[in-house]
Design a protein around this nucleic acid. Structure first.
Length: 741
DNA sequence: AAAAAAT
């Protein structure tokens, strides 16, 4: 019997010794005499028979014909099910009941069979064989054999017992078949007694069920209602709201829809960016001024000009340091946090070098940029887009959550620069959609993250596919063991350039570590997050992100979660809403800790402390970008104080933990405002985060539309990336600031 | 723990 996962304690505990005794003396027992638990009997006693109970029918076994007749008339199959105990009874091997559900799960068609059961019942009593034949249309061999095959069947049952329960719980497919499955399997597990009861005392068991589990009996009788309930389930409905396509996906495994479902919108947004960038690149003539800092670095003139068109004329330190060496084809080890301008630091020389060579052969890209998250990949792709284009090169973003087709097609046409996350790239390599033997330049961005245990095997597998002697550039915030290994294994005489020291060097950033009582965490989180401007709230887990976002909304702070458990479309929408200002608070896992660029994040609030000082710096790097001011607030529970002190030391920040309570002036000093307490209406959340309308809406969706794109679309595709062109910062283009990361 | 591929 599986452990009772949900309730924590076995239901058995509820039975008094008297009840147990009663159970043992139960009527059914009398003729069965082998109930393995007392539960059925006990519950039986507890509940009087109802009109709806099948008992009477059952009792009347003798008039089987009549019965089968009744059965056929019975609309709900469920009822029949409950009668099954009789069946198990026939089978000497009761113990195998679980096996039965196992079979079920294996036979999707089963639900259909169910409707057919009425006849089956009939058969059952008299002639087992026939009945069975009827039900199992799909098993020819069985059909002809009647009694002979019975043993075999039992055998199966026994064997499958364990598996079956397992399947029930875990298999999405199951739920797909039956609307009520999830609830059901749940219940099953909770009621150990049930399977036992089944055999012996059908009636009792049933009563037990009914009285004990109102919801269930309700659902059973009334299936439609149940499916309805399904929609109400929080986690689920959340997803649903996000993804118009979801109902469509429903047939798929939930996990899949949730995780890596290819989102058409994500695809379209990708295409959209491309169009926009292309349009921008053909605006009026530009002159490269004499004081253009990029002019003297040796880059192809077209690139310098293209940058100037977007007002980018002064290289960041890491750029001026790295570019000459990178242009010379040397291996480069760049140390610097995101925000220091890494994308252009490797992107410009890479493209400049590629500009001269032959075009890429089909499926054989010439350069590879490997990044740890999809968002980062998109950001890099966007940043390089205009530059790639101006050189007449081609690039492609290859990452999970996007369709294989476009990626494979692009690769077939030939791609010069591949921007990829490791998983999908490896997948495509295995599918022979791409090979890396022509890679001349490889870049590892956020290498310290890529060197994580989880990433490392894939990363090295990919690196091993590339020819030796190619140029490798590796950018990392730190040089710890993992990165060291990459450097030793894959870089040759690297030139190291570092702008900062993996320490907090940004002087415009303020750090606060607040020592708080656990009971105040929710309130304080809401206070700190509730302020003018954008706030990024970091939490440790995906579940935590959802939870904190919900709690914030309940307290009147408009927030939404961003994490890897969302499908790509939802990720894009959330990030887009945050970037365009319609969503003030982003609650994220570390998926957003690195590289993600959003302007004007005034506060980074770490509800859960980061894992280490590197993460601290990466997370805090979401604020105070490019000279802006920013505040980093970290909440620490008492037991986290020492860790936080150490981390602050390692990160080079000056912030001793100080106690804080809700309404603290210390919080107010950072701009915190006590939230209204009026929950943010869910439809507002939906409105802001919803995808393109389906059914009756514009064919290709809302404002991000797929229609002809004219200048009026200047603001364009906000949910895909930062696009503030035309704003106060001038028309610096899509890679204005993001590119400097 | 999260992220990164799905089947």
């Amino acid at each position: 019997m599986p452990k009772n996962l949900r309730s924590g304690a076995p239901k058995k505990a509820r039975w008094t010794p008297d009840q147990k005794a009663a159970a043992k003396k139960g009527p059914k027992k009398a003729h069965r005499g082998q109930s393995s638990t007392a539960s059925g009997g006990a519950t039986y006693a507890a509940r009087p028979a109802r009109d709806g109970d099948r008992r009477p029918e059952r009792t009347e076994r003798s008039d089987r014909p009549a019965r089968s007749y009744d059965r056929s008339e019975r609309p709900a199959r469920t009822n029949e099910r409950s009668e099954r105990p009789a069946r198990s009874y026939d089978r000497t091997e009761r113990s195998d009941r679980p096996a039965r559900s196992y079979d079920r799960s294996e036979r999707p068609a089963r639900s259909y069979d169910r409707d057919d059961r009425a006849p089956r019942r009939f058969d059952r009593d008299d002639n087992r064989g026939p009945r069975r034949d009827f039900n199992r249309d799909d098993r020819p061999q069985r059909r002809d054999s009647t009694r002979d095959d019975r043993p075999a069947r039992r055998y199966d049952r026994d064997e499958n017992r364990g598996p079956r329960q397992y399947n029930r719980e875990d298999r999405p497919v199951t739920s797909t078949n039956r609307d009520d499955r999830p609830a059901r399997s749940f219940n099953r597990d909770e009621r150990p007694a049930r399977s036992f009861n089944r055999d012996d005392n059908r009636g009792p068991r049933r009563e037990f069920d009914r009285s004990d589990r109102p919801a269930r009996s309700f659902n059973r009788d009334d299936r439609p209602a149940r499916s309805f309930n399904r929609d109400d389930r929080p986690a689920r409905s959340f997803n649903r709201d996000d993804r118009p396509a979801r109902s469509f996906n429903r047939d798929d495994r939930p996990a899949r829809g949730f995780d890596n479902q290819v989102d058409p919108e994500a695809e379209r947004m990708e295409a959209d960016t491309w169009v926009k960038a292309t349009r921008k690149s053909v605006e009026g003539p530009v002159t490269v001024d004499a004081d253009n800092g990029f002019a003297g670095l040796g880059l192809t003139e077209r690139l310098v000009e293209r940058l100037a068109r977007d007002g980018i004329t002064t290289p960041f330190p890491i750029q001026s340091a790295t570019i000459p060496d990178a242009l010379a084809g040397k291996d480069v080890l760049g140390r610097g946090q995101t925000g220091s301008g890494k994308t252009l630091a490797f992107g410009l020389p890479m493209l400049s070098r590629l500009a001269d060579g032959d075009k890429a052969a089909p499926r054989r890209p010439r350069a590879l940029v490997l990044v740890p998250t999809r968002e980062l990949a998109m950001q890099v792709s966007d940043a390089l887009e205009p530059l790639v284009h101006v050189l007449g090169l081609r690039h492609k973003l290859v990452a999970g959550g996007l369709s294989y087709t476009t990626q494979i097609n692009a690769l077939n046409r030939g791609v010069d620069v591949l921007i990829a996350t490791p998983g999908r790239l490896k997948d495509l390599i295995e599918r022979e959609a791409v090979q890396l033997r022509d890679i001349q330049i490889a870049v590892l961005d956020e290498a310290d993250h890529m060197a994580d245990m989880g990433f490392m095997p894939e990363v090295t597998a990919i690196l091993d596919q590339m020819p030796e002697g190619g140029q490798r550039m590796l950018f990392s915030a730190t040089l710890d063991k993992g990165v060291d290994k990459l450097v030793e294994g894959y870089l040759t005489d690297p030139v190291t350039h570092s702008t900062d020291d993996a320490k907090a060097s940004v002087t415009t950033m303020e750090h606060h570590v607040l020592l708080i009582d656990p009971m105040h965490k929710k309130t304080i989180t809401a206070e700190v997050a509730n302020r003018e401007g954008r706030t990024v709230v970091f939490v440790r887990t995906k579940l935590g992100a959802d939870r904190v976002a919900l709690q914030l909304r309940e307290q009147g702070v408009f927030a939404a979660a961003l994490h890897g458990g969302l499908n790509q479309g939802a990720r894009n929408r959330v990030l887009g809403a945050f970037r365009d200002g319609s969503l003030p608070v982003l609650v994220a896992t570390d998926v957003a800790a690195r590289g993600i660029h959003v302007d004007d994040v005034s506060v980074v609030l770490q509800v859960d402390p980061p894992a280490d000082h590197k993460d601290y710096l990466h997370r805090s790097g979401r604020t105070a970008r490019a000279g802006d001011k920013g505040t980093v607030v970290t909440l620490a529970l008492p037991h986290q104080r020492r860790t936080m002190e150490r981390m602050a030391r390692e990160a080079g920040i000056d912030a001793m933990p100080t106690k804080a309570v809700p309404g603290d002036e210390r919080l107010a000093a950072t701009g915190a405002v006590t939230p209204s307490g009026i929950p943010v209406p869910e439809d507002k959340v939906r409105r802001v985060l919803e995808g393109p309308k389906r059914g009756g809406g514009r064919p290709s969706g809302g404002p991000r539309g797929g229609g002809p794109r004219g200048p009026r679309q200047g603001g364009g595709n906000r949910s895909y990336r930062d696009d503030r062109s035309g704003g106060s910062r001038g028309d610096r283009g899509s890679y204005s600031r993001a590119a400097r990361d």
